[in-house]
Design a protein around this nucleic acid. Structure first.
Lengths: 250, 250
DNA sequence: TCACTCATGTAGACGCGTCTACCATATTGA
DNA sequence: TCAATATGGTAGACGCGTCTACATGAGTGA
């Protein structure tokens, strides 16, 4: 009942400080204001109020002009944060194939905000990949299917499905340009790379979205589509890149 | 050269406001201060400075006591943010199997911080799942292997690998408790659920980590392990839950 | 038409996290 | 031993994003 400990949850900033201290203590035995400031790329003066707050919360020992260390509780907390960081790094790098440096940076940003539930499912995915006998090959297929030279392309090479299955799957895939007004489909993927791809994705045409072709301008070039309650126009060139699974016509 | 536009990147908060306006305009044709405040769960008074800043940046039209609307540029920006949101939601829900409401919340937090590169790889994973003929079955396997009743368990049922492959894979998997001092292995998964699992993960024992068993206390209960430069002790009960792929002894 | 209501806007405050500028202390080397 | 230097700490400022309390306007019913 006693609300002694002002144990407000750590802010992102304080979590970062704690994590930094953890790494410094691990690598250099001690943590000093100066090192913390350097690691976080802030001025020393900014570190001090943060240290005071962490000390108040009982997570670090901080006496003026002495080395900073983690209390047992701070160590636990830091480890937890750090584990989140590494889980995310691993997921981004080893599953999604993001280059290590970017994976690190993203992990840094996301470790603070992803829910426990979200983290747990990511861990489960990692477990799946490393424990299911088929898990490993999933990644190989992912790379083959979607990550060849960072370029999205038709799944053809790596997949060990029968030719008939493949043909069937390809047959159902049409470009948005091939739809007639009134017809609809579900986005499977966006062909190609670069700014055009990005623009299409930015507009919200991502895999899984259900799109209806509303009308085609007389000239045939701008076409109007509708999805998820909003309507917008697309160049023909862009529409061609959007690959759909055709929905049965009503 | 002319630095006219004070086009500092949007803060998280402003991104959220813009996204909220986008949704309101889409669903109700107009956006009012009051609705924005309600949607974001803040006071009306807090909305006003935000609107002023968005208007200064040319993203919304905001005249005193008139309806708020998006400028074309604001619409583009909002769509982009919103597309990120939906991409993440879809990934969390449809790939990782996170319940919809939690997926939404996580998407809200992460949409601001994930790098473009990270987003792109997530999109590619979605494309893989929906376009590779084998993609769909990957998810089924993931659910079978790792998500049965939200419980981590041995991969056995759903996998279509030969019995011999499976036996081989199981044979290589040992519990951390079975290691002898000096031996090491790579974490494959943590058995079970609940707080013990969480504690183990919090300590940083996540799939892919390389662990060395340092020593076992005479009584056999606390065991000391070392990984990633740090050392810690584990209860025997916990160690049993940590499943490894044994590394060849030196 | 006039008071009431409610959405909108203003003023001022606060906490956080940073900064700059300056002060204090400890360490070190000539 | 004592001054130079590096490290740590203090004071005060600022921007952001929120709040509360109050003011202003615009529509509404009696």
């Amino acid at each position: 009942m006693s609300d002694d400990l002002p144990n407000t949850d750590l802010s992102e900033s304080l979590e970062d400080y704690l994590e930094t201290i953890f790494e410094l203590v691990r690598d250099h035995k001690v943590a000093r204001i100066r090192d913390i400031a350097a690691a976080r790329d802030v001025r020393s003066a900014s570190v001090i109020p943060a240290m005071r707050r962490l000390a108040e919360m009982g997570l670090i020992t901080y006496e003026k002009r002495e080395f900073i260390d983690l209390t047992p509780e701070g160590d636990m907390t830091a480890r937890r944060i750090y584990a989140r960081h590494r889980t995310l790094t691993r997921f981004f790098r080893d599953v999604l194939g993001i280059p290590n440096d970017i994976a690190q940076k993203d992990a840094c940003s996301l470790e603070h905000s992803l829910s426990d539930e979200g983290m747990d499912h990511i861990v489960r995915f990692l477990e799946f990949i490393s424990s299911c006998p088929e898990g490993g090959s999933v990644l190989a297929r992912f790379r083959n299917c979607a990550l060849v030279n960072g370029e999205s392309r038709t799944c053809s090479g790596g997949c060990s499905v029968s030719a008939s299955e493949r043909m069937q799957s390809i047959a159902k895939t049409v470009s948005l340009r091939d739809l007639k007004p009134g017809q609809s489909g579900t986005v499977i993927r966006i062909d190609g790379t670069g700014p055009v791809r990005q623009r299409i994705l930015d507009m919200g045409l991502i895999p899984g979205v259900h799109v209806i072709l509303e009308r085609v301008s007389p000239a045939g070039d701008p076409i109007w589509i509708k999805y998820q309650g909003s309507q917008l126009s697309l160049r023909r060139k862009e529409a061609q890149r959007v690959l759909l699974e055709r929905s049965p016509s009503p």
